[in-house]
Structure formats: C-alpha cells, structure tokens
C-alpha cells in the first residue's frame, strides 16, 4: 500500500469520524439526550393520568395508569404540575437546546423549562394539547 494512499485513506476516514462525533457529541451528550427523552415521555404520562382522573376515565378506553412514580431522571425531583379549572400544564427542566428536536414541537419552552399544556375544548369537553 503506497504511502500517499495510506495517508489519504486515514485522513478521509478520520475526518469523517471526527466530524461525525462533532455532530452527535460525546457520551455525555447522549446521556443528556436520553434523560430528555425520558422527561418528555414522563410529561406525557402525567398528562394522561391527569386527563384520565379529570374525566373519570371516560376519555380513555383503557384503565387509568398512575404516574405518581414519574420523577426527574437526574435529580429525582417531582415534575411541576399546574392545574386549573379548564387547563393544566406539566413542566420539566430539559438539559439540551430544544431547537433541533422535532419530536418536542408540542412543548412550550421558557429557556430550559419545557411545558406540556392542555386545555379543555369547550363544546366537546375534551382535553386537547395546546400547540404553538
């Protein structure tokens, strides 16, 4: 294998590997992503439980599942729930910038604090998620 080709192959592959890592970040970033995904799933679970309780289970074809065990994966703190008569929100503190996460379009962000907001749609008496 001649020297020039050898160096060129190493350069191309290392370049690709380094830029790949620069794009996705290291293990710390990956762990933070996983915790954020967990938070997002927890918010949905809590919201489901609240809707289930509020409607006496009518809105659900399956049994209500408690979300009492849902706590922040890093700090272990309970999520913040604000409940009113015909609206509620559940919030978590997320670790990563939210710009590049299409799956979290549903969240309302105030810096790191992201909230899932629901309101009671009047004529149909159904809980609907509040978009942007």
């Amino acid at each position: 294998m001649n020297k020039l080709l050898f160096v060129a192959v190493i350069a191309v592959v290392s370049g690709a590997v380094v830029s790949g890592l620069a794009v996705v970040g290291g293990p710390g970033q990956a762990r933070a992503e996983k915790r954020d995904d967990q938070r997002f799933a927890d918010l949905h679970r809590i919201a489901d439980a609240i809707i289930c309780d509020a409607g006496d289970g009518r809105a659900f074809s399956r049994a209500c599942r408690s979300a009492a065990d849902a706590t922040d994966p890093q700090t272990g703190a309970a999520y913040e729930v604000t409940q009113g008569e015909d609206a509620f929100q559940v919030c978590a503190r997320f670790e990563l910038a939210q710009a590049e996460s299409p799956m979290r379009d549903a969240l309302h962000f105030d810096r790191a604090r992201g909230c899932l907001r629901y309101q009671l749609a009047q004529p149909s008496k159904q809980w609907v998620i509040e978009g942007h």
Partner: peptide, 24 residues
C-alpha cells in the same frame, strides 16, 4: 432537522474505529 441520524452516526463511528486500523 433530523436528530434520528444520531444513532446511525454513533454506530458508524464505532465500526470505523475498529475496521480501519484492522484493515490497514
């Protein structure tokens, strides 16, 4: 916009870190 490619990138990086030195 896609964050879904992250796993693909991490896996490919892991494969290349093993195969390139081995082949050379």
């Amino acid at each position: 916009s896609a964050r879904t490619a992250d796993h693909r990138i991490r896996w490919a990086v892991a494969v290349l870190i093993v195969t390139l030195p081995l082949y050379l």
